[in-house]
Simulated scan of single mutants.
Amino acid sequence: MTTIIENIKLGAMKYAISILGLLIVILSTGCAAPTAPLVTRVIDGDTIEVDIAGAIYKVRYIGIDTPELDDKEARLCDLAQEATRYNRQLVGGKTIRLEKDISETDQYGRLLRYVYVDDTFVNAELVRQGLAWAISYPPDTKYQDYLEELEAEAKKDKIGVWQETQPLLPIIVENVQITYIFYDGLVPRVESDEYVEITNRGDHPQEITGCVLTDISEGYPSFTFPSCILAPGKSIRIYTDEYHPEWGGFSFEYSQAIWNNTEPDVAALYDNQGREIYRKSY
């Protein structure tokens, strides 16, 4: 009888130990808090890179499409830069929440997700600002009706991509030259620190609002100057994907290198009527 009781106690102890071990495994793995995605790079208006538990993923926003940074139409390229800037303002360097619809990835291996920062639905916010079109990509259409409602409002308000273009008054640009192209950036892989330097060689202030700088070897990307007056003898720089207020704070918002390191490209500057002002290679 004593032996039977001892065997029962021994079995119960082994069972308890096994349960305790299982609980330890669960607590150390399955119950660990998930790592919130951290945005490490904003690629353009509708694509980002995120760090999830040490792994890097590209994320494509579902249900929308923003203008492309390499569009050969200067107006759309300008809107693409604006969308990229706004996207960076919303999510750059922040932890975000990702929501899946039906598909896991697209044909390029990018995660397809709805993106949130706190209470802001980023996909929807870009459409609301007129910086993205509401585009249906079946079967991922959970919020498509809502996105199309926001698009209709933006279209009614004529903002962003829906804005009616007004003819620009011609500006005479003289003595403004491309003086330097830093084509071999130091930042690995993306060379975001590349830049084109533009200088006013004249004796008077020169307005360059609406002037367009482009890589004519490829036909893209282009940069359209916002309201800007360049003082005599002063230089400004247009960086590939960096901001330097001391040089004007201008950027192509381009997520990869623009200027070819082995086969020289040609940069060209046009006035606001499309007439060439200056070109330079390296």
Rank of each mutant, 00 (worst) to 15 (best):
V176D: 02
E151K: 05
T240C: 14
D193L: 03
Y116L: 11
S103T: 11
L147I: 08
E149I: 08
D106G: 03
I178H: 01
A32N: 14
Y195M: 11
F252D: 01
V176L: 05
A83Q: 05
N200V: 04
I62L: 13
L126W: 01
V50G: 04
I96W: 03
I178L: 07
L126A: 04
T224H: 00
L230D: 02
G30M: 12
E148G: 10
L111N: 09
I238E: 01
L20W: 12
V25Q: 14
R88W: 03
S255G: 06
I198W: 01
D78C: 05
R88V: 01
K58D: 09
K9I: 13
G160A: 08
A132C: 10
D46M: 03
T84M: 04
P67C: 06
L168E: 10
E194F: 03
L112Q: 14
W259T: 01
I171G: 07
V50L: 10
Y86P: 00
E104G: 13
G160Q: 02
E153M: 07
I277R: 01
G54K: 07
L22E: 15
T47H: 03
V91K: 00
T141P: 07
P170I: 09
Q81A: 11
T179A: 09
P67D: 06
I216E: 07
Y61D: 02
A36R: 11
I24E: 12
E207I: 08
V117Y: 09
P226A: 12
L230H: 05
P37T: 10
A80S: 08
I236M: 05
R189S: 14
I198F: 02
K142S: 12
Q166S: 14
R237G: 02
Y220M: 03
N272A: 05
I181T: 04
R275K: 12
S222K: 01
D184H: 06
I62S: 04
L27M: 15
I135N: 06
R279T: 12
I5L: 07
Y116D: 12
S235C: 03
L169Y: 11
G219S: 08
I178G: 00
Y137E: 12
F223V: 04
Q81Y: 01
S28K: 10
